[in-house]
Deep mutational scan, measured.
Amino acid sequence: SRHTFEINGERWTVEGVSEELKEILRAAERASNDEAERLLRLALKLI
């Protein structure tokens, strides 16, 4: 499935992501810059 999210003013669209990964991306959208970066690094390990 496709998911579009915005982090630090940048929009991203990813396809074929699991519900778990979507949850991480949604958390990154709400997080501070440092926390968002940490969550994105974690998410990339899952891809």
Rank of each mutant, 00 (worst) to 15 (best):
E15G: 06
I7Q: 01
L39T: 01
S1T: 15
G16I: 13
R26W: 11
E19G: 07
L44M: 11
E15H: 13
E35M: 06
H3A: 04
E10K: 11
L44A: 05
A28N: 01
R30M: 15
W12S: 00
H3I: 12
I24N: 00
N8E: 04
A27R: 14
A43P: 00
I24Y: 04
K22H: 13
L44D: 02
T4E: 11
L42T: 06
E19Q: 12
S18V: 04
A27S: 09
I47W: 07
E19A: 06
N33F: 15
L39N: 00
E19P: 10
E6Y: 08
V17K: 03
R38C: 06
N8Q: 07
K22A: 12
S32V: 06
R41T: 14
R11L: 15
L46F: 09
E15C: 12
L44R: 06
L44F: 07
R11V: 14
V14P: 02
S1P: 12
E19Y: 08
N33G: 15
T13M: 08
N33K: 15
R38K: 12
G16A: 12
D34P: 14
N33I: 11
I47L: 13
E19M: 06
A36Y: 07
N8L: 15
N33A: 13
R11S: 11
F5S: 00
R2V: 15
I24S: 01
A36C: 08
A31F: 04
T4D: 10
S32Y: 05
A27C: 07
V14D: 02
I24Q: 02
L42E: 08
R41V: 13
N8I: 05
K45H: 11
R11M: 07
R38P: 02
L25Y: 02
K22V: 15
R38S: 11
L42M: 06
R38E: 12
D34Q: 13
D34E: 15
L42D: 05
A28E: 02
L40Q: 02
I24T: 03
V14S: 02
L42G: 03
K22C: 14
E6W: 13
A28F: 06
A28C: 06
K22P: 00
E29M: 07
T13W: 14
G9T: 02
G9Q: 02
A31H: 04
A36W: 07
R38D: 11
L25R: 00
A43K: 00
R41M: 05
R26H: 14
I24R: 01
V17C: 08
S32K: 09
R2M: 07
R2C: 14
R26L: 14
A31C: 08
A31G: 06
A43F: 15
I7P: 01
S1C: 12
S32E: 11
F5W: 04
A28V: 09
E20S: 03
E6V: 15
I7W: 04
N8P: 00
R11Q: 12
